[in-house]
Design a protein around this nucleic acid. Structure first.
Lengths: 202, 202
DNA sequence: TTCCTGACTGATTGGTGAGTCAATCAGGGC
DNA sequence: GCCCTGATTGACTCACCAATCAGTCAGGAA
């Protein structure tokens, strides 16, 4: 890609990684593009060499990661394990993502999936796609008789995804502890609670 | 209060109501203070006569409404009906608030409770107070043997509140229908799902 | 009638920060 | 050696907007 830096770092990547830290620390609106450039150790203008605008930096970060989530959901559905394992795999993917890169997940949740006027609206199709994927999985569980049918799949999805996002929010706000143990317990408890409420009673 | 307008409207209130609409429509950061003044049909400077800053307008809106939520939670706990009714009352209060004034609830959720860098951090004590209230209610249900004890009250609260907030978010994004029937069903289904997952199995 | 208070006005200011652009520099092909 | 391409730089521009402030106006008190 770069002739000048054959073995050197990809500056575009460096800028994106710096942007994650800056957006997480100061918020998208509060930070300045020069903050990103400084954090990346790069000249101001280079940000505009690689990205058309400040917005495009955030769009890129979101799309990169959300694509992985959509793939994870599709993969789970393809392997077709028992419903509990499916939901566990999805919850784990999201929680693990946070554990591995809390700053990035913070940015995605705070600045995109919950930003109803700006980026959230813009990325609504991709966000909805994730909901639809989860809803399809739940619908199948209902058809197979594992889940009760008096709660719509779309609604069950909102409960499931909402619980996970609230969990991440609590970590983001540092309102609950975040040791590796807490992460492990949390996944298990979300699945336990939601599946518990959706399963057909014996 | 006003000597000049003895029988006239309270301009402070007019400004707050206009701010709700403007914040909901354009977002706190994107809108200008002049938008609020125009919407209120009031001179620009009057906003600064009643409020020290743009921030203070949002702070006021949030605190006004959140106080009502905290009172509702306390009241439910005081009356001490069965646990299902308690959670139903809380879910109903929030969903009804949205139904009655969607713009205000949109602003509170999008701009405050989910704004981890700005207003959310600032109002964390009040937000946490609501969580604590709900957690206390769930803890009592556990002590009385109605709820299973292997899921912590704090965690159960996150699931419950997270599901509700995700529901509102879906309405805010216009991702799900919002007829009076949908509101009624929604409350019922949140309580059903979460209680279902938390109750002790027969 | 005069003065005082406080609601109300809107032009102005001052700071800020996104995006531009002209210039520099390094490497590769000829 | 020379040109071309594209990465890289950072000073500058320009629009925007929060906050200020000097003033107007209305009603009540004295």
């Amino acid at each position: 890609m770069s002739a000048r830096n054959a073995g050197a770092v990809d500056k575009r990547r460096v800028i994106l990684d710096a942007a994650i830290r800056v957006f997480a620390r100061e918020g998208f609106y509060s930070c300045r593009v020069s903050d990103i450039a400084n954090e990346a150790g790069v000249a101001y203008g280079l940000v505009y060499h690689y990205f058309r605008s400040k917005d495009e930096v955030l769009d890129t970060l979101f799309t990169e990661r959300w694509t992985l989530l959509l793939e994870a959901i599709a993969e789970v559905d393809r392997r077709d394990p028992p419903i509990r394992e499916k939901l566990d795999a999805i919850a784990s993917f999201i929680v693990d993502s946070y554990q591995n890169d809390p700053d990035l997940m913070k940015v995605i949740i705070v600045e995109v999936t919950r930003a109803a006027n700006t980026f959230g609206r813009a990325h609504l199709p991709e966000i909805s796609q994730a909901y639809d994927g989860i809803a399809a999985i739940i619908r199948k569980a209902q058809e197979e008789g594992a889940f009760r049918t008096d709660i719509s799949p779309e609604f069950a999805t909102l409960c499931f995804y909402g619980a996970i996002e609230q969990l991440l929010t609590a970590w983001i706000f540092e309102a609950i502890p975040a040791t590796p143990d807490d992460f492990a317990q949390a996944k298990q408890m979300v699945v336990e609670t939601v599946c518990g409420g959706l399963e057909v009673r014996a």
